[in-house]
Nucleic acid binder design. Sequence first.
DNA 1: GCAAAAGTGTTATCCCTACACCCATGC
DNA 2: GCATGGGTGTAGGGATAACACTTTTGC
Lengths: 253, 253
Amino acid sequence: MLTKEQLETLWAEADEIYLNNISIDCVVFGFHEGVMKVLMLKSNNEDAWLLPGGFVRKLEPIDVSANRILKERTGLDEIFLKQFHVFGDPDRTKLHNEMYRDMLPAKKNFFDRRFISIGYYALVDFVNANPTPDVFSEVCTWQDINDLPPFQLDHELIFKTALDTLRLQLNYQPIGYNLMPREFTMPELQKLYETILGKKLDRRNFQRRMLGFGILNKLEETRKGGAHKAPYLYEFNLEHYQAALDGGLSGGW
Amino acid sequence: MLTKEQLETLWAEADEIYLNNISIDCVVFGFHEGVMKVLMLKSNNEDAWLLPGGFVRKLEPIDVSANRILKERTGLDEIFLKQFHVFGDPDRTKLHNEMYRDMLPAKKNFFDRRFISIGYYALVDFVNANPTPDVFSEVCTWQDINDLPPFQLDHELIFKTALDTLRLQLNYQPIGYNLMPREFTMPELQKLYETILGKKLDRRNFQRRMLGFGILNKLEETRKGGAHKAPYLYEFNLEHYQAALDGGLSGGW
DNA sequence: GCAAAAGTGTTATCCCTACACCCATGC
DNA sequence: GCATGGGTGTAGGGATAACACTTTTGC
C-alpha cells in the first residue's frame, strides 16, 4: 500500500515526465507446459488484477514506451509487440479515479484523469521472463487464460480484445517464434495453436500446414525421455519466418 | 490564412475543450464514377494537403470525436468508421509545430505540441457528402486515390496504412453498403472491389462470390441507357449484410 | 451487322478435411 | 504385449480459378 507521501512524489514525477491522458496497457502472452498464460498484476489497493501498463514519456515513441514498460515487468528486451486497439471511453478508469481522488486533491492529481489507453499485445518467452511488480502492485505473475482472476477497470475487455486479435492474426502470421523455446516438437507447437484458438486441431493436417509454410527446419534429434515414441525436434527458419511475417500467410482455420 | 489573433483565440479554446497531445485523423473513402476517392484538405499555410482531423473533447468517447469531426467535414451522420492504427512518433508533427511556433509563443501554444494521432478510416456515400473546409484549410475536396497531391506531415503513411487495412478487411467484411448508391449493378460493385484491391477480378467469379454471400437482393429493373446490354440492378439485403458484418465472411482474394 | 458490355455455365485444380495404419517407447 | 503418443499417406468434397458462348443494345 502506497502512503500519501509516496503518491504525491509519484504524481509530481509523473506530471513532469509523462504525457497526460494517455496510457498503455499490455496483454502479455506466454506459453508453458501446454497452458497459455497472461501476465497480470495484483493491485495493492484492491483484490483485483490489472494488466501491466504505464505511460508515455513526453518525447518517447509509443512503441518504445510499450517496450520499456514490458522490460520493467519482465526483464526482457526486444519483445514481440503489436498495438491492437485504443480504448477511449472517458469512463473507463472511473473507479480507479475515485480511488485516487480520496488520496490526493483532484486538481493536481496525475492519476485522477481520463486516460485513453493504447492496447498492445505481446508474445514472450515464458521461461526467460521474470515477472516484477510495479509500485502500484504487490504481485506480478502469470495467470492461466482459462482461469483468470477478477479484473479491474476495463482490463477484461482489453484482454478479450487482444485474444480475439491474436486469433485473427493466426490466419495471417506465424506466431510461434516468440512463444516457443528454440527447439520444440510438432505436438508442442500444435498445443500452442490449440490453446490460442481454444479448440482441438487434427494432428496430421496441422503438421502438413505448418510444414507447408516452410518456416520450420526439421532437426535430426528427437525428444527422448517421453513415455512413447520420440518426436522430432524443429526450429524456426528465421529467414522464412521473417518473410512470412512481412508477406503474410494465407487461409484460415 | 489565419491571423495571429484568430490563432490565439483558437488556441485558448482548444486548450479548454480538448485533451492535450491527442488527435484524430480520418481517411475518408468515397466511390464515384468508378474511381476511389479520399477526402482531403488543402492547408491555407502551405501548398500541401492533409487528411481531415481534429481533437478529442475532454469528456468525449473517441469514436464520438471521430464522428463529430467527420460530420463537420461532410455533413453526414452515422458514418461507417473504424479505428485502425495509432501514430505515435514524437516527430510526426514536427514541421507543423515549427510553423505554428513562429506564430505564437511555444509555451502557451496548443498546436505546438506532440500529438499522438488515432487513425480512423471511414466509408461514406460520395453523393451525399458535402466537403467543407475547417479553419486551417481553404479547400476540402475529394482526391482520386491514384492521383494524390503531396501530403503534409505523416499523412501519406496514415493514408497508406488505412488502404492496407481496408484491403485486409475486404476478406472479412462486406463493405459496399456504405460506398455504393442504394441501387447498383454488379459491374459497378465489382469496380469498387477492383479499385480498392488495385487489380482486376474475374466477372463471373466475382458475381458468384457476391451472390454466395447472400447479402444482395436482385431487383427486377435493369439500368437502361447504357450503350450495351442493360445490367440488372441490385440492392443490399440489410439484414444479411449486418449479419455478415457481425459474423464475418470467409476466404481471401 | 458489328462492337462492346453483360448474363450465364462448366471444368480443372487446389486446398482443406476426415480418416487409418504403422512405429517407437515405457510399464 | 499393450497402451499411448507420434510419424506418415490417401481419398473425398468444396471452393476457387480459369475459361467460352450467348444475349442485348446503340451505332
